[in-house]
Amino acid sequence: MTLLSIAHLSKSFDGVQAVDDVTFDLEAGQLLALIGPNGAGKSTCFNMINGQLRPTSGAIRLDGHDIVGMRPRDIWRRGVGRTFQIAATFNSMTVLENVQMALLSQERRVYSLFGRVVSWKEDEAMALLDLVGMAGHAQRSCAVLAYGDVKRVELAIALANRPKLLLMDEPTAGMAPQERNALMALTARLAKERNIGVLFTEHSMDVVFSHADRLIVLARGRLIAQGDAETIRNDPRVREVYLGTGASFAPRAVLGTGASS
């Protein structure tokens, strides 16, 4: 079942084409890796899907519904979770309180910030922490956690609104190799068990080729290849612009397009 449908998505900034006519789909329960060199347009795509940027043109449909122009919080409440390249947690709160805060927001009960929330949805928050292997750290401050553990807490927070779609921007950045693969194996398992579509960006190719069901490759804002790991690994254009020499493919002027991103 198609969960996310992106059609002819484009974004320009003062004449610079950051994303140029990108089209792809994501199925429920599937891990789709969005890769490409720095400046390829990956974060811009994420920010358009998440509502932080409005596309210059194109369509974004979630479960068949157009979400272009919606605010990020409204998109989140439609079932879109997100993790960030730099993990975003409240260091002044405990691990448990961080997840409880996400559950409060999901229930539209932000006003409870001014009351006692110590036991509010504690069981549900603990279940999420147990899911990501962090229940034993529930009462610790996020400020003292190892970075890999912070990433697990962030995943629990992203799961608090029972997402249909999970956007993960460099989910393993700053993690050791063993931690990287453990986190993505956990994500893949949850995606299958809960039928969540996962779109993630990642520079670690061992993570991408080990865990992604499909890959799409951007270069200078354009989609240049898509397919399974073997297809992408052997694509000569991908090898040229990303996996191999790192050299650019044909200049945009030759391709008849505008400036690079």
Rank of each mutant, 00 (worst) to 15 (best):
M1T: 12
T2G: 01
L3N: 03
A7F: 07
L9G: 09
K11I: 10
K11H: 14
S12D: 14
D14G: 12
G15I: 11
D20L: 06
D21H: 08
D21M: 04
V22A: 04
F24S: 10
F24P: 05
D25S: 12
L26Q: 07
L34V: 06
I35W: 08
N38A: 12
G39Y: 09
A40W: 08
K42L: 02
T44N: 06
C45H: 02
I49E: 02
N50R: 00
Q52V: 13
R54N: 01
T56C: 01
S57A: 13
S57L: 10
A59Q: 15
I60F: 01
I60G: 05
D63S: 15
D63Y: 01
G64Q: 09
H65Y: 01
I67T: 04
I67A: 03
G69Y: 09
I75E: 05
W76A: 15
R77Y: 11
G79T: 05
V80L: 08
R82V: 07
T83K: 03
F90D: 14
F90R: 13
F90Y: 15
S92L: 03
V95S: 12
V99W: 08
L104Q: 15
V110T: 14
Y111L: 12
Y111C: 08
G115W: 07
W120Y: 13
E122I: 09
E124L: 09
A125H: 10
A125E: 07
L129K: 13
Q139S: 12
Q139N: 15
R140G: 11
C142H: 08
A143G: 07
A143W: 05
A143E: 12
Y147W: 01
G148S: 00
D149S: 04
V150S: 03
L155T: 04
A158L: 01
L159F: 06
N161Q: 05
R162M: 00
P163I: 04
L165I: 10
G174F: 06
M175T: 00
A176V: 03
P177W: 03
P177F: 07
Q178I: 03
E179H: 11
E179S: 00
N181C: 02
A182D: 12
M184W: 02
L186F: 04
A188E: 15
L190A: 12
A191P: 12
E193N: 08
R194L: 10
F200Y: 15
T201G: 14
E202F: 06
H203S: 07
S204M: 06
V207T: 00
V208G: 07
A212Q: 08
V217A: 11
A219C: 14
A219K: 06
G221P: 10
L223V: 00
L223M: 14
I224K: 06
A225Y: 01
Q226K: 14
G227N: 00
G227P: 08
D228L: 03
E230G: 08
E230I: 05
I232D: 02
N234A: 14
D235P: 10
D235E: 14
D235C: 13
P236H: 04
P236C: 12
P236K: 09
R237L: 04
R237K: 10
G244H: 12
T245Y: 03
G246C: 01
S248M: 14
F249M: 13
F249R: 10
P251Q: 13
R252H: 11
R252Q: 11
R252T: 11
R252N: 15
V254T: 06
G256R: 09
T257C: 01
T257I: 12
G258K: 10
S260H: 01
